[in-house]
Design a protein around this nucleic acid. Structure first.
Lengths: 354, 354
DNA sequence: GTGAAAGCGCTAACAG
DNA sequence: CTGTTAGCGCTTTCAC
């Protein structure tokens, strides 16, 4: 040893046993005699020995590490989901290699590649794409368990997924607006387009959560026999764009009495735009957002929202992955878990002005 | 190979070269001939070879992974800091093993131990304690570079740290209140006590950010020759407790005209309490918070705050750690980096009522 | 129950 | 420039 940290050989020598026996007590396998256990433990403590997981991993082929890739760890939604994953992982003795890709698909690809090279035992990914999935399919092909988080992916092949009821939740949310008497309901949603296939395809195509929510909005309008109008649909790249477009809508279309925002970011922007306008909320215009946050109850009026169980989503993904890793259900068919969102009624929705 | 993933040996055999040469082209070291590079690359692609970092790590002694431990990844402050660390790490080719401890010191200890066993090349930790640091000292003793984030630690020994100007920032913030004419300024702060030593000690003791901010509050009062009152100091365990205590204060002490909140959580609670009371903000009572967030500009009045550069804090910690890892400055003395916060004046602070 | 020996997949000398 | 030979620190047969 001398230079580096002490190895199992140093401990064995110090305790007067073979490396094999030292390994048995330090590694917690086999059945060493109590007396030797004591001696080896003593030596280990005295020398300041600490196990080397990388050496262990190379022989066992297991790292006890899972890889997690999300688009933005600063987004409270993903922060909560990651928290759920993390809790599950630690409870099972796994550590978490986390990468935040900033919605950049190229970065996601290289991250997935890096995690494969690091030999993670499994992976949970919320991809930046719903159609490009060659990198995800390769994960499966390498025999590494994969769980898709919050969005499906057409190119990944048959794989476990843990999702939210985006379309149904949005449908219910817009129904709530309709029930209050609104007829002209605008929607402010993300401009991230689902990549459309050029040829026609029979199979259902994966979509981003915000697209599914938009579809749910359309479902509700159709069900109510409302034609809708192109001006009601505000597709925005970011919060600033959303705020501006809502501002414009508010002056250009006074007939619109309610706004449905499909993401927390869009909800904030819409709220800001209404505050800056001369319309009052909810007297003149109602607002219904997505995702519940601390500020939902800090603003006046308090914001009505569709609350998503982000922590549970992550925890469920962790559970599914850990199940695969335990080997128990490694053979069973891919599962799809869908969690329910709930509508939280507060003060930002009221009947339209008479 | 047959069963498992192909190894460098399989590739070498397929390409008709030695494992050493295959390693040279696949590992990117040495100087293999262009012709062989082509052949090896071809074979690697055909066989679906992917490097095994754990085998590489065991021989090089380097994992290209850094460990990061924070108390709560769901806290926007830490989420931003982690984002800063993550960006720096990835730019330098490192992955990040993240653990969120929930402010539980025992969990932090075992996490640090696990990261050591995983042989991370370096560690960044925002400890749940400012006095207990035996586990951190052990990291140093093992020769693993360590950077303290957001708080010092008395037990860790001399070590790099990246901090915020908590005390000075709070001092300036309260001065802002005083400048507006306030004399009775309450403070709502975290109840997390810095562990006090039993015996007397000469050396400066590390303190939590909220404690330092409280000290800055005291500095400002003293400088202004204001005696202060015990009733002005609200130490609270959590947001609910804070909201209740602020509510009580508002009715019991109408002479208090301004409130300084030392954390984002406390600021939210205080804001909520004021909204629920019959006092108006800022006409009757002013509020100054810590940490800037999206909702600061969504509420009415908009919240004046001390904004902390959380992302930069993380990025700076990453830079310091990476510097140590590059070997360049591995010998130099521990550094202490202190980042400046800034006061953002918005609508929640006004002169006291006449 | 214990030890000797053989690897895990790769890199690092060292010869050629 | 390329191949041979040792390991890295550990677990895992396999005899004893």
């Amino acid at each position: 040893m001398s230079a580096g940290r002490p190895t199992i050989i140093d401990v064995a020598r110090d305790a007067g046993v073979s490396p094999a026996t030292a390994g048995r007590v330090l590694g917690g396998y086999g059945t060493p005699a109590p007396e030797l256990v004591r001696r080896v433990r003593d030596s280990a403590r005295r020398l300041g020995y600490r196990a080397n997981d990388v050496a262990r991993s190379i022989v066992t082929g297991l790292t006890r590490v899972i890889g997690v890739v999300v688009s933005d760890i600063e987004n409270p939604f993903f922060a909560r989901a990651v928290s759920g994953i993390s809790d599950r992982a630690r409870a099972a003795g796994y550590e978490m290699l986390l990468v935040s890709t900033g919605l950049d698909l190229a970065r996601e690809r290289s991250a997935v590649e890096a995690l494969m090279a690091k030999r993670v035992d499994g992976m949970i990914v919320a991809s930046a794409s719903v159609s490009e999935g060659a990198h995800l399919r390769r994960v499966r092909e390498a025999g590494v368990p994969l769980v898709l988080l919050d969005r499906r992916n057409d190119g990944a092949g048959a794989v476990d997924a843990v999702l939210l009821d985006n379309r149904a939740a949005a449908h219910r949310a817009v129904n709530h607006l309709l029930d209050k008497g609104h007829r002209a309901v605008a929607v402010v949603t993300s401009a991230v387009a689902d990549e459309r296939p050029t040829g026609r395809r029979r199979k259902a195509l994966a979509q981003f959560p915000s697209s599914l929510r938009f579809a749910g909005y359309l479902d509700a309008l159709e069900e109510a026999g409302i034609a809708g109008a192109p001006e009601w649909v505000l597709r925005c790249d970011d919060a600033d764009a959303a705020a501006e477009r809502v501002r414009d809508l508010l002056t250009a279309r006074p007939d619109v009495t309610a706004i449905f925002a499909t993401t927390n970011v869009m909800a904030g922007a819409a709220f800001r735009a209404i505050m800056d306008s001369d319309r009052r909320c909810p007297e003149d215009v109602s607002l219904l957002g997505f995702d519940d946050h601390e500020w939902s109850t800090l603003v006046r009026p308090q914001l009505s929202v569709v609350a998503q169980p982000a922590y549970d989503l992550g925890a469920a993904a962790g559970t599914v992955l850990l199940g695969r890793l335990s080997g128990r259900e490694s053979a069973s068919a891919p599962s799809e878990t869908i969690l329910q969102s709930s509508l939280i009624v507060r003060g930002s929705v009221a009947p339209p002005p008479a």
